[in-house]
Amino acid sequence: MAQSATASAAPLLEARGIAKYFGAITALHDVNFHVGAGEVLGVVGDNGAGKSTLMKILSGLYKPSEGELVFEGQPVSFSSPKDARLKGIEMVYQDFALAGNMAIYENIYLGREPGRKLGPITFVDHNKAREMAAEHLDNLHIHVKSVDQNTEDLSGGQRQAVAIARATAFHARVVIMDEPTAALAIKEVGKVLDLIRRLKDHGVAVIIISHRMDDIFYCCDRVMALYQGTNFAEAPLTDTSRNEVIGWIMGTKGHTEALAHDRLQ
């Protein structure tokens, strides 16, 4: 298979021969994975195929039982999401993980507040955080009434936008998104997908886990399928079709004529 143009350079983040065991259960075995700067990679697979486990390994939440992670050509090992964040690997959670009682700008810089530091205490510079947040949202073409709005007052799409803004607030290199459109109203899905494309234009590597073929085929450069905990297939988007990808999710190859999900057992 030909590499797509955007991914032709050396991969930014790579996983080699990853395995993850939970006791006697094998969640992942021999998984290889790579994503390049400015590339949007779609990861598909049925429930239990290992997508979430793989993403948790990439974002530092789990340690792989076997295999190694390579970031910019250097082997890396993350013992917590904080380590991954220091390298610029950020995660956007399906439920957005925002504090609804707090303002947009506070959510964006939560845990990384700007201000004067004294030991473990930071004296938060609220005005600076507001300015930084407004500027950052502007860069991403995200429009909100005010950065002082509480996130519980926002629509699902706006919340997702704030979650993405938080993930990209500090020079993110890789952004992992778990079902970025699952919790959104239909009319908001397009806006979030456009935002993902904008991240790509900024040179960020984006990994999208999604069940929605529309999302995958709207903004991804490449799609890879996991099946029963290991690599099943992958292809640049231009070389595949929805039906084929749906077939991959179900563990079959070579479906082209008939819709795989139309078949009755």
Partner: peptide, 18 residues
């Protein structure tokens, strides 16, 4: 601020590195 964040959504606080 982290105290308010924990009250608002402990999971959000946790994934923010708090």
């Amino acid at each position: 601020r982290h105290i308010y964040a924990i009250g608002g959504n402990p999971q959000a606080a946790r994934v923010s590195g708090i």
